[in-house]
Each structure stands twice: as structure tokens, then as C-alpha cells.
């Protein structure tokens, strides 16, 4: 029994990891684009971006999952996502990437706007090009500013991956819960908790290492 449980949970955990990894992979670049759009001097673009970010951050991720998955089929009479588990997975990834990109975009925006204007100007009067100023002056300071809040979001993402079960993507918690129905045992669910703890624990250690690494300077 124990082996069966571990096997099932590990399978679910792989799914959770996949969601986690793909969300970061998609949401970081998309978040950067959104943050740049929200800082654009072209008012319609920055305005529209800010409204989207406001909506996404102001509503539960679970609601977004449901609407993104069921919305096209019911409202437009056309289920883009197709049937079957791969369609549900893609819909889940779209919802997660969009949601996290909006959160990340606010962090990036804060990080970029937080670099004092004088830093850029100091680079300018030293004859640096805009590219040089970005890579040699601004970037490190932005990274240092965003690592702690990004860390918080990333740890939240670990736990948020469990939400995909509302559209029946079978991640680790779904697997754990299935044993209640099938075998009337609850300990697999506790075991699920261990997966989350170990995963977020490892990430916490890695993130604080990174923060320490950036401790050599102050902004």
C-alpha cells in the first residue's frame, strides 16, 4: 500500500512541479513585458495594462481557472482547449501564467521604478549608452530589489499549484485525496503535505542563499 501511495503521489508531484516550472518560465518574461507596458508613456497602453493587472490581482486565481477553462466553450460555443487532460492542462497553464505574470509585473515595476533617477543620470554623464546603463548600472539593482518579493510569490506558487484540481488536472493533492475515496485512508494526504513542505523548504533555502549573495551591496 505504502509503495502504491508513494508512486501515485510522486506522479501527482511531477505534475505539480511541471505546473510550477512552466508558470515561472512563462510568467517571468510575460511579467516583464506587462511591467514595461504599464510604464509606457503611451497612455492607452499603460491604462489598459493597469486595468488588466487590477482585475487579475483582484480576483481569485481559482475563479480565473474556471472562467478560462469553461468560458470559451460556454460563452463562445467553442471549447478552444479541446477535450481530455491535455486541454485542461493547457487551460490551467494559461490561467497560471497570466495570473502570475500580473503579480510579477507589479514587482518588476516597483523594482525598476525604485532605482533612483540619479543612477541613470550618473551613467549618462559618464558617456554610457542606454544599453550599457541598463546592463551595467540598473539591472543588478533591480534584481536585488525584486528577489525578496519574488521569493514570496514563488513560495505562494508552490501551494497555488494545488488549485488546478478544480478543472481536474491531477496534481499531488488530488492524488492524495483520491485515497480517501478509494481506500478510506487519510495519511496519504498528510504525506502530500510533506511534499509541499520539502519543496517550499528547499526553495526558501535557495532564495535566502541568493539574497545573501546580493548582500555585498546596499541600495
Amino acid at each position: 500500500m505504502f509503495l502504491t501511495v508513494v508512486k501515485a503521489l510522486s506522479l501527482g508531484f511531477m505534475k505539480s512541479l511541471e505546473i510550477f516550472g512552466l508558470t515561472l518560465l512563462g510568467a517571468i518574461p510575460l511579467g516583464l513585458l506587462i511591467s514595461l507596458a504599464s510604464m509606457s508613456r503611451f497612455k492607452p497602453l499603460s491604462g489598459l495594462t493597469k486595468i488588466i493587472v487590477w482585475i487579475v490581482r483582484g480576483t481569485p486565481l481559482m475563479l480565473q481557472l474556471l472562467i478560462i477553462y469553461y468560458g470559451p466553450g460556454i460563452m463562445l460555443g467553442n471549447n478552444w482547449w479541446g477535450t481530455g487532460s491535455s486541454g485542461r492542462f493547457i487551460a490551467a497553464m494559461v490561467a497560471f501564467i497570466l495570473n502570475y505574470a500580473c503579480y510579477f509585473s507589479e514587482i518588476f515595476r516597483g523594482g525598476i521604478e525604485g532605482v533612483p533617477k540619479g543612477q541613470r543620470e550618473a551613467g549618462q554623464v559618464l558617456g554610457m549608452t542606454n544599453t550599457q546603463i541598463f546592463f551595467r548600472v540598473t539591472l543588478m539593482q533591480v534584481i536585488k530589489r525584486i528577489v525578496p518579493p519574488m521569493g514570496n510569490e514563488i513560495i505562494t506558487l508552490v501551494k497555488d499549484t494545488s488549485l488546478v484540481r478544480v478543472i481536474a488536472v491531477y496534481e499531488v493533492m488530488w492524488e492524495g485525496q483520491s485515497f480517501i475515496k478509494s481506500s478510506g485512508i487519510i495519511w496519504p494526504l498528510f504525506f502530500t503535505g510533506v511534499y509541499y513542505l520539502v519543496f517550499s523548504g528547499v526553495l526558501t533555502v535557495l532564495l535566502s542563499k541568493l539574497e545573501k549573495k546580493l548582500d555585498y551591496f546596499k541600495v
Binding site: 540619479g118 543620470e121 550618473a122 549618462q124 554623464v125 558617456g127 549608452t129
Partner: peptide, 25 residues
Amino acid sequence: NDEQIRRNRLHFGLVFQSFNLFPQY
């Protein structure tokens, strides 16, 4: 253009009231 402005800046130097050193260096 930007490049001409950048070159012009090299004639001069500016020391700011608030130093503006690069903290990571």
C-alpha cells in the same frame, strides 16, 4: 541624436550633490 549627445557629454564631467555612486561596484 542620442549618440551625438552621448559624445558631447564626454567633453564634460558632472559631480552630483547626491554622489550617485553605483552601489554594486
